[in-house]
């Protein structure tokens, strides 16, 4: 964390994003503000449908619009509002300063071109290199992401590589920009086996040491958060419910949902002798039926009347840790007992 500079790279300011569906307007992201500093790894954590991927895709305008729609807000990248950019301008941004890696590299890579030529393409399109130079740079990047025998592997088609190798190739492509500013990694290890996941997380950690970049890491896995994050934003049903430095979120979670998420993990040390897990009851509510109250209220053991009628304002635990919960004091008291 000591490498984190104080300059802000990305600022999402009060974003509201919705989808028009046959059943009505789904408010996928509500009043969301996030900042990512230069050199920082921010993880966005939450379960399916919480709006974490919509948020990531809003940054480089990858959400389908329509039916998607930005209702309000700004996304400032180095001071430029990305939401105001034209299609061509955002495309240039994607190839040069904001890169993205996806959960399933097989669907993100083009199956009819070799991985080397796809990476070389980035250099040729955005930096005007010739083919030979671009291919040479592709080999360099394969070295960097530790793909064995890179001179041979750049001529492979995606299906000829294993899942782990494909993800490495994806990462190499994301690094094929003159100044990798922000890498958005959307569940980069979810589709991988656990021994391969460990390798990829290790690689991302190494690359951060070597290259001055920020990572926005999207995950549902608190183990990945523990491994990678500098700071953590917890989302639930489109809302930010807790934000903190990584140590504080694990040692002193204040939102009942964050607490429930940690308690849902069978690997939590508290279950060494336990017969059952402390599961969160109920299910995520239908985004169409959520009113202005706290979306977690129907599953929350701490919920009071006010939770059902109004979403709480921010409570600051300390300068790096904030929570949006009417009853965070009760959470603290109960944990102390």
């Amino acid at each position: 964390m000591e490498t984190v500079k104080q300059e802000t790279l990305l600022e999402i300011d009060n974003l509201n994003f919705s989808f028009k569906t046959q059943r009505g307007l789904v408010r996928a992201v509500r009043d969301l503000s996030i900042t990512i500093k230069k050199g920082e790894t921010l993880t966005l954590v939450g379960e399916s449908g919480c709006g974490k991927s919509v948020t990531a895709h809003a940054i480089n305008q990858l959400n389908p619009m329509p039916p998607g729609r930005v209702d309000s807000g700004r996304i400032l990248f180095n001071g430029i509002d990305l939401l105001q950019l034209k299609k061509g301008e955002i495309e240039k941004m994607r190839g040069t300063q904001i890169s993205m890696i996806f959960q399933e590299p097989m669907t993100a890579l083009n199956p009819v071109f070799t991985v080397g030529s796809q990476i070389a393409d980035v250099f040729m399109t955005h930096q005007g290199m010739g083919k030979d130079e671009a291919m040479a740079r592709a080999v360099e990047l394969f070295h960097l992401v530790k793909i064995p025998a890179p001179e041979r592997r750049i001529h492979a088609y995606p299906h000829q590589l294993s899942g782990g190798m494909r993800q490495r190739a994806m990462i190499a492509m994301a690094l094929a920009s003159p100044e990798p500013g922000l890498m958005i990694a959307d569940e980069p290890t979810t589709a991988l086996d656990v021994t391969i996941q460990a390798q990829i997380l290790d690689l991302l950690g190494d690359l951060k040491q070597q290259i001055d970049m920020s990572i926005l890491l999207i995950t549902h896995d608190m183990g990945v958060v523990a491994e990678m994050a500098d700071r953590v934003v917890v989302m639930y049903a489109g809302r930010k419910v807790e934000e903190s430095d990584v140590n504080s979120i694990f040692n002193d979670p204040r939102h009942p949902y964050t607490l429930g998420l940690l308690n849902s993990l069978p690997s939590n040390p508290k279950y060494k002798q336990a017969k059952r897990l402390e599961a969160i009851t109920g299910t995520v509510p239908d985004l169409l039926t959520i009113g202005d109250g706290c979306p977690f209220a129907n599953r929350c053991a701490y919920a009071t009347d006010i939770c059902r009628s109004s979403f709480p304002s921010m409570s600051e635990i300390n300068k790096d840790h904030s929570v949006w919960c009417h009853n965070h004091e009760s959470v603290k008291r109960e944990k102390a007992q």
Binding site: S162, G164, M165, D193, V194, T195, I196, Q197, A198, Q199, D202, D221, M222, G223, V224, A226, E227, A229, V246, N247, F250, N251, L265, S267, N268, P269
Partner: peptide
Amino acid sequence: ASPITSPEQRKGEKHIFQGDV
């Protein structure tokens, strides 16, 4: 390779098994 359960378990030098299945 099993994910860690708290950031305090991060290790500087990890003993990760290399290679694919």
